[in-house]
Amino acid sequence: MKNYPRIKRVEPLSGKRLFVTFANNTKKIYDCSLLLKEETFRPLLNDALFSSVKTDKHGYGVIWSDEIDLSESELWINGLPAEQNSENIYLS
């Protein structure tokens, strides 16, 4: 099993995206919009809930509630390097 960097910080962005900073200081943007088609993630359509995202206390993922979370591996593998998106980070 591969070890992925833990998550140091997460910030919600417009367009249902997350700006994730990993422990190795790599920054990635993860688009959650595709997840919203799945029943489990549908509550994230609520902007207030989506904006409440926080890092798991051990850095193994991000959490919204006891039922809704994403692992560090999912964010690492499918997140896009923030440098490629730096001009559009805060735009919808």
Rank of each mutant, 00 (worst) to 15 (best):
D69A: 09
G15T: 06
T26A: 07
L13R: 03
L91F: 12
G59N: 00
T21H: 03
K27S: 07
L80Q: 06
P43M: 04
E83R: 03
S71Q: 00
N25D: 14
N25W: 15
K2Y: 11
E72K: 07
K37E: 11
D69S: 12
V20N: 03
V20E: 02
G79F: 03
R9G: 07
S52W: 08
S86V: 12
P81M: 05
I77E: 11
I63S: 10
V10M: 05
N78I: 07
I89E: 06
I29V: 15
I29P: 05
S33E: 12
G61T: 01
F22K: 06
T21N: 05
N88P: 06
A48Y: 10
N46T: 08
I77Q: 08
E11I: 10
L35R: 07
S92H: 14
S65G: 06
K28S: 05
A48M: 15
F19W: 13
E74V: 14
R42L: 06
P5I: 02
G79T: 07
Y4F: 15
H58Q: 12
D47S: 12
I29G: 04
A82K: 02
R9K: 15
G15L: 02
L91W: 10
N25K: 13
E39M: 12
G59A: 02
K8E: 12
L18C: 03
G79Q: 04
A48G: 13
T55L: 08
F41W: 06
E38I: 07
D66P: 03
N85R: 12
K54P: 07
N25F: 15
S51G: 10
R17T: 07
S71P: 00
C32W: 05
N25H: 15
D66H: 14
R9C: 11
E87D: 10
I7W: 00
L70D: 00
D47Y: 07
S14H: 15
D56W: 03
S92V: 11
L75I: 04
I63M: 12
T40Y: 09
F41R: 08
E39Q: 12
G79C: 04
N85P: 08
K54N: 06
L70M: 04
P81F: 05
F50H: 01
L18W: 03
T40S: 05
I29M: 06
R42D: 08
S14D: 15
S86H: 09
I7T: 00
E74P: 06
R17K: 12
E87G: 09
L75G: 00
L18V: 02
R17H: 08
N25S: 13
L49W: 08
I77R: 08
R42M: 13
H58A: 15
T40D: 06
S51P: 04
Y4H: 10
G79L: 04
L13H: 03
Q84E: 11
E11K: 11
P43A: 02
P5W: 00
L34H: 15
K16W: 11
S51N: 14
S92E: 10
I7M: 02
K37S: 14
P5M: 04
E67I: 08
N78G: 14
